[in-house]
């Protein structure tokens, strides 16, 4: 045990408390063969074995490392498909123990070889999220630096916030929401000296963007059908012309808009 310092302490205690027993992998076997049997796409009907699914704890099956499932003795014992069909280990990257044990199993020289599969099995981990999982709240004494940073930022924001906190009475909310009503084309009669030119600009701007929309819509449709025909020959067309066209046209419209606004402001 002491010759393998990179073992997880949980593994060590488990290995020392429960010494090597050859019958332990045999108790694992039914769930593994069930596992492979499950991934068999030929299995197309509800048999009696599917009714016994609920008795097997799903978390335990998913917490098994793929190394254990891929071991040749198990693979030869089951008639299921080979290890390419093995289920995704959803705990990958979530728990450090699994990563550590898979590191151990990747180079078996450092791991204790006398224990075999039993030692490479990670400790039982219950999933925190997803079906069947439960959220375990671990209280923290010292808040992390991220928590402290966000709290400080929130305090800073409440000090220098540009919005006011008002007592909601009468038509306060309505008045302050009406301030947000910025989207309006000025009617020609309302303010004839300044804003009439913006109103003149709005119509061609909207019309040009709508017509650009129609153009890109039909470009996209033609590209779809081009893809549909070309994909059946195993090829895929890269889009160059439509991207350039979109960029150039939108840039032209925006530039024209900008220039018009600048010229109107000058006169």
């Amino acid at each position: 045990m002491d010759t393998s310092p990179c073992l997880h302490p949980f593994d060590q205690t488990q290995a020392t408390s429960a010494p090597t027993s050859p019958s332990a992998p045999n108790t694992r076997k039914p769930s593994i063969s069930f596992n492979l049997h499950h991934n068999n796409p030929v299995d197309n009907h509800a048999s009696k074995s599917s009714d016994s699914i609920g008795t097997v704890p799903l978390d335990e099956v998913k917490a098994l490392p793929t190394q254990l499932v891929k071991s040749p003795s198990v693979a030869s014992s089951s008639s299921g498909p080979p290890s390419s069909q093995v289920l995704r280990n959803r705990m990958e990257g979530k728990a450090n123990q699994i990563a550590q044990s898979s590191d151990l199993s990747s180079n078996p020289g450092t791991a204790g070889t006398d224990n075999g599969d039993e030692q490479q099995r990670p400790p039982m981990i219950r999933r925190n999220t997803g079906p069947g999982g439960r959220y375990i709240d671990v209280p923290e004494q010292v808040p992390k630096w991220t928590t402290r940073l966000s709290a400080g930022l929130r305090k800073l924001y409440t000090r220098y916030s540009p919005s006011l906190t008002l007592e909601n009475k009468g038509s306060i909310a309505r008045d302050h929401l009406a301030v947000t009503q910025l989207f309006r084309l000025q009617q020609p009669g309302s303010n004839p000296h300044e804003l009439i030119k913006v109103s003149e600009l709005g119509r061609p701007l909207g019309g040009s963007f709508i017509s650009l929309g129609i153009l890109f819509l039909w470009l996209g449709t033609s590209r779809y059908f081009h893809n549909q025909t070309v994909l059946s020959y195993g090829q895929f067309p890269a889009s160059r012309g439509s991207v350039i066209l979109a960029t150039v046209t939108v840039l032209a419209v925006l530039l024209a808009c900008f220039i018009i606004v600048i010229l109107q402001g000058r006169t």
Binding site: N39, N44, A46, L87, R88
Partner: peptide
């Protein structure tokens, strides 16, 4: 509803199906 003979919660989805 059964998928490949299994309920949705106990179904092990293969990589291609995913």
């Amino acid at each position: 509803r059964l998928y490949r003979g299994h309920r949705a919660r106990s179904l092990n989805i293969t990589e291609e199906e995913l």
